[in-house]
Amino acid sequence: MTEILRTGASGRTSFASLTGSGQLVLGVLLVALCLGISAAAPQFYSEANIIAILRQCALVLIVASGMTMLIIAAEVDLSVGASLAFVGCVGMAVLNATDSLALGLVSALAFAGAVGLVNGIVVTLLRVNSLIGTIGTMMMLQGGVYLFTREAVQNHHQLASFTALGAGYWGPLPIPVIFAVAIFALCAVTLRFTTIGRYLYAVGANERAVRLSGIRSARLKLAAFVVTGLCVGVAGLILASLMNAGQPTAGRGFELTVIAAVILGGTSLTGGSGSLFGTLLGVLVLKVIDNGIIILGWNQDLQMVVPGIIIILASYFDLLRSRHHA
């Protein structure tokens, strides 16, 4: 018996060091990247560039906050990229039609939330594997957005408040960053301190045990899908504001960047473990790499290759980590 306890105890320390070291490695990597890029290209540290990076991070982080919750609950949403484009078009079209910022925002958020709800229903009620089910909704959204509009929906009224959504500042900080920080904080607090957060981890760790404990796991997952959808809504509006139009082609590959960031941040695809802080680090690392590619004058198409490779590597490390403790 003592022997069992001893191995158990050592297992714990090594796990703590591993997760801890995972985020530490990520932090060190981030610092190294920043130093390396700025050594090669001093303009990396210009105010304009840092703000550009933060803005880029904001979009990803907003969606990644919801996605982290979803992946912790052992589900995933691949439709976020397609939804991002559609949301922008819908928001812009309503804005054009009504000349009302409030209506535009509400309709875009409602649309995005509805997409999340549909994803949630497909996964919980129809019991379709979320990877496949959300590929299905992704295709429907991709086709649907072209049926909705052939070309970009231009911003007709040029409402200042709408432009501010993407391009505005609050003090020294871009407004998208404020949104990202707020959503990040909200999700982080939910995951860390509330019953809902604890149940999300529990569902991801063992859904049957959660059901047997009298907790309605399907509703919980449904909520996580809707929250992710709403996050996409916010990000889609900001993107439309930044591009001053609703672009049906926007957001291609966005889902992969988001998932790569989450997995890179140490959240396990098998569910039940992970943290939003890790996701934040993951987003920063990916976006600094992206920015480095541009600033060093490398081919921008590398931006597509990098998350592809990182997602495979990160899931391999995730697998190693779980095997190590099996």
Binding site: T195, R198, Y199, Y201, A202, A205, N206, R208, A209, V210, L212, S213, G214, I215, G272, S273, H325
Partner: peptide
Amino acid sequence: EGLMGELPMYQNASLASL
């Protein structure tokens, strides 16, 4: 059907009464 193996022991114990 019972354990959430990856989660701490106290969270396993309190699951039904959180």
